[in-house]
Amino acid sequence: MEKYFTRLGDGSAVWMTEEDIRWDLEEGMKDAADRGRIPELTDDEMQRLFEIITHPEKTVSCERGNEGVVTFDAGTLKLPVRAGIPMDRMATILTHERALCSDTMELCTTDYSYKSIKNFVHEEAMSMELAQLNSIIPIFYGAMPNLGQYTKPDGPIDNWSELLPLAKIPEARAAQEEAVEHAARDMVYISSIVYDSGADGINFDTVGASGDGDFLATLKAVETLKNKYPDMPVEIGMAGEFVLGMHGQLTYEGDRLAGLYPHQQVKVCEKAGATIFGCVINTNSSMSFAWNLARTVTFVKACVEAANIPVHVNAGMGVGGVPLTNTSPTDATSRASKAIIEIGKADGL
């Protein structure tokens, strides 16, 4: 029986039969439909997914005319910090603009949390001004809400990660509510300064990493910022496929945030005033690439259909069907890219 080269969710190579790939595609798709209570993919879409996965060429690409727009999180962290290339942020931005042909870029700092930026935000504003003088592509400023940074020992608030295991639920919830206000205030403060210095947009990245409080703080910050700067472009990129209920009862305009899946998250972000939504679907490293990709595309399609704003799907290490390895094989990455744009109908990555 013919076997096709493909990958597992951790990036390792595997040869699978047509029957096994189709089985995994079906199971992954159904898992997403079941968890998100969203429509299943059509037979045609499943067939296209199968063809993308089993395409004999190493890397694949979209059909001409189907290209999408790419935005970045952790933009200026990747080359000078993670890759260790001795270049400054200005050179990084121009490398992305002129050599890598990125559509947009993000200026960010190594401690990628809004709270940490307070002490040097004016230096960040200067860097933004310089970047704007020299670059053509839109430059976001971005960081994470990182609500956990407001808890002891890093911040003033009691640590809910310690309170919850002691079953001190009301205390843990009160602590999160207090942290929400601190985080929202910091995000508004920093975003205002970098926007006044010429940023093309603000990116809130890995939103919800500390749970529903993290998400609420971001929504509140976005709402305040949009009242202050109605034209400010704002991207909200999520941390996971559903909002972790660290508090469990927080709401935004009547919607409970905990447990929301991408097609529901985007609606809340729209209400707050976001202009681009960064949808996240987690990769399960123990399952096959086929299983993960079908699951991703099912969630993406439902999210894009629900959205009135552009959806840029996170397709980096361990998300969007991309295997959980920091050197993801191009065969898998390009297939995830194509399937998300062409079947999921995403507006970008």
């Binding site: 079953a167 639920i169 919830r173 496929e241 209920g245 660290m246 469990g248 905990a258 447990g259």
Partner: peptide
């Protein structure tokens, strides 16, 4: 794991 029950409930059940 499915986002249908949240951390406080998880901790309450543990209690």
């Amino acid at each position: 794991g499915r986002g249908e029950v949240f951390l406080p409930e998880l901790m309450l059940s543990a209690d």
